[in-house]
Computed example of a mutant assay.
Amino acid sequence: MLQFAVLNAALFGLVLSLTTCVCELTPVPVTQPCVTALAEDHGSLLRGLWMQHIRDRLRGNAPPPVRVYSKQKLLYCRVGIGFHIQIVQDGSVGGVHTPTEDSVMKVFAMQQGVVGIKGVKSGLYLCMDEEGITRGVEQFSDACLFKENLEANHYTTYSSLSHPGFYLALSNRGELKRGNVVSRNQACTHFLPRDDEL
């Protein structure tokens, strides 16, 4: 009788262990009663939100992206005397030494290491086209996605996800530079996200 009880306990433990492994390895909808599914996987959540955004775009109905982990920042470029990037109402992008309301950006994560940038005052998204020109636009698209990379000098670079090797950059005079004529090693592409102090 004791051996039978021990065998039952061992079998129950094996079944429980297998069930846990299946829950961890199999994508389970949130509605299913799996204990592991209740521990929200942020990576899966962001991928799901991004796929929903793509589906909406294919249907011709692209809402603004879900702002997950969004923060208001000033993006300071260390080139020249130092400039804060800004998006003005007409969509033009440039830099100013002393930050203004047009310099306040909302940086929001779309997936790990990929962000969108929106001017708080202008309401425009920062986008880069196939010619490396950056501008502010009303409609969010793939061109508005940037890879956020922390460099060895602790500055951050923003490269176009749609156009690899194209970087957000300002000149020594604070003017916008084309993203396809600069590299991540140049100071003009190095930004320091600073808390909004305005």
Rank of each mutant, 00 (worst) to 15 (best):
G119T: 03
V93A: 08
R194I: 09
G179M: 00
T31K: 08
Q52C: 11
V79S: 03
M128D: 04
M105Q: 12
V88K: 15
P63V: 06
T156W: 11
H97M: 10
K71H: 12
N153Q: 02
S70W: 04
V6S: 09
G91R: 06
L18M: 15
H97G: 14
M110W: 06
T157H: 01
T36E: 11
D196I: 04
R194D: 03
G13T: 09
V96M: 07
Q186Y: 04
F12M: 11
F83R: 01
T31N: 07
Q112V: 08
E138F: 07
H97P: 07
V104L: 07
A169S: 13
K121C: 04
D196Q: 06
S92V: 10
Y155T: 15
C23Y: 09
A10R: 14
A169N: 02
H154Y: 12
L74A: 01
Q111S: 14
H42L: 14
L18Y: 10
R184M: 12
S70K: 07
E40H: 13
V96H: 07
Q72G: 01
S159W: 00
H84Q: 07
D129P: 01
N153C: 10
N61Q: 11
Y155L: 11
Q72N: 15
G119I: 05
P64M: 06
N8P: 01
T36G: 00
L58K: 07
A169W: 04
L198S: 06
V181S: 15
A37F: 01
R59E: 11
R78Q: 15
P29W: 00
T100R: 09
F146H: 05
C21A: 13
S159Q: 14
S141G: 08
L192M: 13
S122I: 05
V114F: 05
P164K: 06
Q139T: 14
S160R: 01
G132W: 02
S162Q: 15
C144I: 08
L25P: 00
L49E: 14
T189R: 00
P193N: 04
L192K: 06
G13W: 10
V104M: 06
G80F: 02
V137C: 07
V15A: 13
S44E: 15
L170N: 02
R47D: 15
